[in-house]
Nucleic acid binder design. Structure first.
Lengths: 313, 313
DNA sequence: TTTTATTATGAATTTTTTTCAAGTATTGTT
DNA sequence: AACAATACTTGAAAAAAATTCATAATAAAA
């Protein structure tokens, strides 16, 4: 009668409040979701939610099923993980590197969860920018690299995690703060505060300044997100940071954020792994865990398509 | 990944010990079950049971999923029942009659369970043979009749419960006890002990004696199964009873049982309901509960096809 | 009221599930 | 140990179900 996919659909419908967004998250069309729910309501002979309202509201029956989903879905996840542990060897190594400092915010809880499930897996991570992580991954010194700048390297495959919006953080009193979006030219007289990495590894250059041939007046480095934002708030410059990393500081009114270009920019964060390791149970579980942590903890991110990244050459 | 149907399949596979019997219970071909499990093992990349043994044995992974099923399936059933209660009115009437005395054995636990789930439904039942139950059902005096002898009555539909084998109970020392099966002619010199109903309502006449044109030497009535078996054990006659009703007495060696005719006879027990009531949630739930109780408690019964009975005219 | 965004629906298409038919393996029997 | 009987596997065909596409209907926002 009722199926697990129904519980998943209802759960994300509850989270999103609309069919169309549910469809996006589940990588289906809105039509498919509509058909699926109609079919289920037909089987149960019972309305599950009230359509003529936004956000959608659930009936008692719908709520009862949400309740069921909350019980059942974690149980199923646990069982699947256990089975994966029994089957594949449950020991292994997971050494990872993060190209983006801010990522620690969501990576920490994900790693904690993972350690509980796979105590035998040897965990290690580094975020230093003292070496190039993708070649290290290729060599086998690393097993997973979190990057927003995938390179077409033989034997490396990229699994999309989520989409985010690189934005510009400004002091509330900054001369650009009145604009609803920032143009590349605006930055030619500004001090840009970045993480201490080469320009080529920074979204704001790759996707915004370099294509327009603009350079900021001055570049200044800072190690920590919080330090960058203190500098911004103190009027020492502006900073390019992902929207989800800015969220809590925006709420506290430390700074304001503006999108880059009229339409804004969307970029995708990937987990890079060696192709031959991609099927390994604990790796897959780590990535699954990481994604679910992101969508729980971060505001403003979107689901990525399941597709591998497209390389021009 | 894993679906509810998989959990159901694994559960009944555990109960039956073979794919072929699992298939029968789930109303599928054995091939379908084989494909389904192979597909699941492929998805999990993991063997769930060891094929080269009968009865089939589960791997640790298989056992883990059985465990999951045991947690999850009842939760789902409860939720579905709750939804049914919310949607349809949760009050109503369920007056039933049983044509077969022995049926109390499995009906009692089913009724107990049902009362817990649907406290608002007014329950009543009678097993007297003082009136014809099917016309009473048609009139609306009853809501459900348990019968093994469906009549083609306009507006009445029959839902199969299970298949059983009417058998002949004999004293261990009876002159026919050495035969592996009973022929109609054998009974022409015997005293047949039956429930106090007309011959036309008894399986042993309908399906065995009447077609062969044989009558027993004498007919004697008894109210209770246990009383009938005491009479049989005391050599006062023989009795026709369903195999599942005899099971516990056979184990205690009170009596022996022989099948009717060389191939034995199989008959189906039905729940008769008024067509317009058939869709009602609590009725459907009662029948579902009854069936599951039967298969838990009774030995020797088989699943019935989902088909309505076939009437010759 | 018009516009925009969301949801519903029917038909076409794709994917999945099931059955059929035939082959292989296992068990139990003589 | 060979035989039959029963149970399971497998690939292809058929049937059923899910998904998409195109479009209509509906609700919210401007």
């Amino acid at each position: 009668m009722i199926e697990i996919k129904h519980l998943k659909t209802l759960t994300t419908l509850n989270a999103t409040g609309s069919l169309i967004e549910t469809a996006r998250q589940l990588h289906l069309t809105q039509s498919a979701i509509s058909h699926q729910l109609k079919e289920l309501e037909g089987r149960l002979n019972c309305a599950l939610f009230i359509r003529k309202s936004r956000p959608i509201r659930f009936t008692v029956s719908g709520l009862r099923l949400l309740d069921l989903a909350e019980q059942v879905l974690p149980q199923i996840n646990n069982a699947e993980r256990d089975v994966a542990r029994f089957c594949s060897g449950n020991a292994g190594r997971l050494h990872m590197a993060i190209e983006c400092h801010s990522c620690f915010q969501w990576l920490m809880p994900a790693i904690d969860k993972f350690r509980d499930s796979w105590p035998e897996v040897e965990l290690d991570f580094c975020s230093g920018f003292s070496f190039l992580p993708l070649p290290a991954l290729k060599r086998g010194d690393l097993d997973l690299v979190v990057t927003s700048d995938p390179q077409p390297i033989e034997g490396i495959s990229y699994i999309p995690l989520f989409c985010y919006q690189p934005m510009l953080a400004l002091s509330r009193h900054h001369r650009l703060a009145h604009k609803s979006y920032i143009e590349a030219e605006d930055l030619s007289q500004e001090t840009l505060i970045t993480y201490p990495v080469e320009k080529e590894r920074l979204d704001i250059f790759n996707l915004f300044l370099t294509p327009e041939g603009v350079s900021p007046a001055k570049i200044r480095h800072a190690d920590l997100t919080l330090m960058m934002l203190q500098l911004v708030a103190s009027g020492r410059g502006v900073a390019g940071l992902p929207n989800w990393a800015l969220f809590e500081y925006l709420q506290k009114d430390y700074v304001v954020a503006r999108r880059l270009g009229k339409e804004g920019i969307w970029n995708t964060l990937y987990a890079a792994v060696r192709e031959e390791q991609q099927g390994m149970a604990y790796l897959q579980d780590f990535i699954k865990t990481a994604i679910s942590c992101c969508f729980k903890d971060l505001k403003g991110i979107k689901v990525a398509s399941t597709e591998a990244p497209y390389f021009e050459n």
